[in-house]
Write a protein that binds this DNA or RNA. Structure first.
Lengths: 239, 239
DNA sequence: GAGTGGTCTAGACCACTAC
DNA sequence: TAGTGGTCTAGACCACTCC
């Protein structure tokens, strides 16, 4: 009746069941140990662990071990949520190091979406998003340079989140448009997010406006690791 | 400077470049051929092809070969689009076989979302979605039995799409609420979608109402294969 | 230095597809 | 029947982490 399952999938299911109620971060037995315990080759034990990694149930660290995954819910809807707010709400510890701040000439797409004239300049703000010191997000944001007097300086002063900066200037943030898809990252992005190869990642493109005036404030391209962030995209009211 | 790449990733990039402008469906060289051509073991050639499969660039068929992937864009936004409409728009051939029609007692979640009384019954409609004869979607829809006189019979009469049936009754369909996430399918769903193991699939939960009266018409749970469907989730106006 | 996951080899058998 | 991808073995070396 039931199709015969390959050994490594049976083993994966067994291990999955065993670790189901383990706390996040707990270390699993090593490949060699599992191979011995279940009388299979190391490669078969390894394939089982890789299957669990594919299901986002475990995280594997070179030279260290295999650990029960800690995943954070990331709900994207019409309400704008900052990185630190989102991570904290999930009970984890966020950090948001800035990788670079530059004033550049925007691409045509950025100019169109932000409603900027041909000669406009924008601030490019590149930040990483970390969950419990694990890299999970790479965000490239583009903002008009003239949002407020001395605006780029505010950013350079080590602001942790963008939302408070914009709020302090007097804007009320609103998600105007967003698009999410599973995409293959370019090699540079894959390196920044410390993923091997170029596995599919969430790409979320996001346009934020001021709720009062409708002015477009920010366009951002965010790459997210699905093994760390459980991204959910929602619209309408669930009520 | 650049970190040393493992052989199989270098090989994957080489092959990716080579097949970049190949037509969808074209067959690649076999694992053994590739191993010989690049002087690596079969397992290394295999790992390279698996990496390309992970990137959704190729499709692999047991006993047959490895083929350039044909992927269909599936844009989910506030406008309701039927399966066949969506697939046809992408230039592919849809089909939508019905796997089962039952009248059942709904779960509490279904009752809540459809605003049904405790004693209500719903029609459960299970359908597959195929793109060019490849299974890509499994849809479980739940509809109040009393949408119209003789409504369940209309379904049983081999209707291809649900939208025309509901439209012919006089409803104007509107996507009221939707949520999409990457999730691990239960074994039954994985089997129905013919995927090995239980790789992450798109789960789209969807509530459709009548635009005129606001009546809730349908709640559906759709599992989608990301290797066949390039799902994009959008809200707001891109304009 | 011991242990871990990452890569790679050579070889084998199997189930499946296509002819 | 020949060729393909899927699975599995035993063994090896490496880079990395942790102590």
């Amino acid at each position: 009746m039931t199709a015969a399952q390959p050994t490594y999938l049976v083993l994966a299911d067994q291990i999955a069941e065993e670790i189901a109620d383990w706390p996040p971060g707990k270390r699993l037995a090593s490949e060699v140990d599992l191979a011995e315990r279940y009388s299979v080759s190391r490669l078969t034990a390894r394939a089982a662990l890789q299957e669990l990694e594919r299901r986002y149930l475990v995280r594997r660290a070179k030279g260290s071990g295999t650990y029960v995954a800690e995943r954070v819910d990331y709900l994207i809807n019409s309400r704008f949520t900052s990185w630190s707010e989102m991570v904290r709400k999930a009970g984890a510890t966020p950090s948001r190091p800035t990788v670079g701040v530059n004033v550049i000439r925007p691409s045509e797409e950025i100019r169109d979406r932000l409603r900027l004239p041909a000669d406009a300049r924008v601030v490019e703000l590149v930040r990483l998003g970390l969950v419990n010191d694990v890299v999970a997000n790479l965000n490239r944001s583009y903002l008009p340079v003239d949002l407020a007097p001395g605006f780029p300086d505010l950013l350079a002063n080590g602001a942790i989140d963008l939302a408070p900066v914009l709020s302090s200037i007097g804007y009320r943030l609103k998600r105007l448009w967003a698009r999410a898809e599973l995409a293959t990252p370019d090699p540079e992005t894959a390196r920044a997010l410390q993923v091997e190869g170029r596995p599919p990642l969430w790409l979320v493109i996001n346009c934020v406006s001021d709720a009062t005036t409708g002015r477009r404030l920010q366009l951002s391209y965010a790459w997210n690791r699905p093994d760390v962030l459980h991204v959910q995209f929602e619209f309408g009211n669930p009520d």
